[in-house]
Structure formats: structure tokens, C-alpha cells
Amino acid sequence: MRLYLNIFLVFMILSLFLFNKKQKIMAISENQLCSTKFEKATIYHGPNNKNIARFVLKKGYPLFVLERRKGWIKIIDPENRVGWIKKDNLSNEPRALTKNKIIIENEDMVIMPNVSVKLIKVKNNECIIEIEKKQIKLNKNDLWICP
């Protein structure tokens, strides 16, 4: 019985170690697309809470990382606004923003401008996005992807 308990404890410790390694690998880096994680994300003038808030974004809003500094990320958004956000308020999920009204005839779907969509793949001038659990191929020019 004691042997089983020791094996279980070793397994749990290794699992925690591997989980933490995976979290570090998924860190947000410069020149990366990301998105806001929570319902409201405040963007500040500088990299601390004492700076004045510039604007607030909704969950899933696409951003591009410019710089990192001690738990803060300098970003630019689709409207070319630059600011700082706490790292914990960002998700690694790459998202894009639609620029224009997009009509997808074979899916009988219309995507309005300024809709945040999950970005699956970008290759040359083509993008694959996910919206309403459907993957759709679009022209890169229809989306804001990065500055």
C-alpha cells in the first residue's frame, strides 16, 4: 500500500512540474497576436496601475504585442491605439477583427464589420477563421491581423 502511495505522490509532483513547464511555454511574447481574456480589460498609458487608464476593451478583442515589461504588455489595437495591459488580462488565443461586411454565400452567413473572430491559420493572403463553430476561408485583406 505504501508503495502505491509513493508512486501516486511522484506522479502528482511530476504532473505539476510538467503543467508549470507548459504554462511557461505558452507565455505571451513580442510580435505576437493575442486577445483580451476577461469581460473588461483596461489599457493604461504606462506599465503600472498608477498610470491613467486610456480605454477599456471587451473580451476577445484582438491585440498585437509590441513589448513586455515586468508583468505588463505594451500592445497596439486595430484602431492603432497603443497602451499597456496587465499580462494576466491577455489570452494566447490569436484573434482578428473584420474590416468590412463579409458575405459567405455557401454558408448563408453575413459577418458584420468590427467582429472579433478566432484566427486559425494565416498563409500568404488567405486566412482561416472560426466563427459560430464553423471554419471559413477569407482574404487576409478582410481582417485586421497585425499592424
Rank of each mutant, 00 (worst) to 15 (best):
K70G: 00
D108I: 12
R69D: 08
K121A: 09
E105M: 10
N92K: 09
E107V: 09
E93Q: 10
D108K: 15
I111M: 10
E105W: 07
I75K: 06
N80A: 05
V82I: 15
R68I: 13
I104Q: 11
I120F: 11
N92D: 07
D88M: 06
S91T: 09
K101Y: 06
N80W: 05
N89V: 05
N106E: 15
I103F: 04
W72H: 05
W72K: 02
V65E: 02
S116Q: 12
E105P: 00
L119Q: 07
G71K: 02
T98R: 06
V110I: 15
L66K: 07
I85R: 01
P78G: 06
I76Q: 07
V110Q: 10
W72Q: 04
P94A: 06
N100D: 14
K87F: 09
K118G: 02
L90N: 07
K87T: 04
I73Y: 00
I111S: 09
K99Y: 08
P78Y: 15
L66Y: 04
I120G: 13
V117K: 05
E93G: 02
K86Y: 01
V122D: 12
E67K: 15
K74I: 00
G71E: 10
L90V: 04
D77P: 03
W84A: 09
W72S: 04
K87A: 10
I85K: 02
K118S: 13
I75V: 14
K70A: 10
V122Q: 15
P113C: 12
V117G: 08
I75F: 07
P78H: 11
V65L: 04
N92W: 06
A96G: 06
L90I: 03
K86H: 10
W72G: 01
N92G: 10
V110T: 15
P78L: 07
W84R: 02
K118D: 14
V65H: 03
E105L: 14
N114C: 02
I104N: 11
P113R: 13
R69V: 00
N100R: 11
V122G: 09
I102Y: 08
L66V: 01
I104T: 11
D77L: 02
W84N: 07
N106K: 14
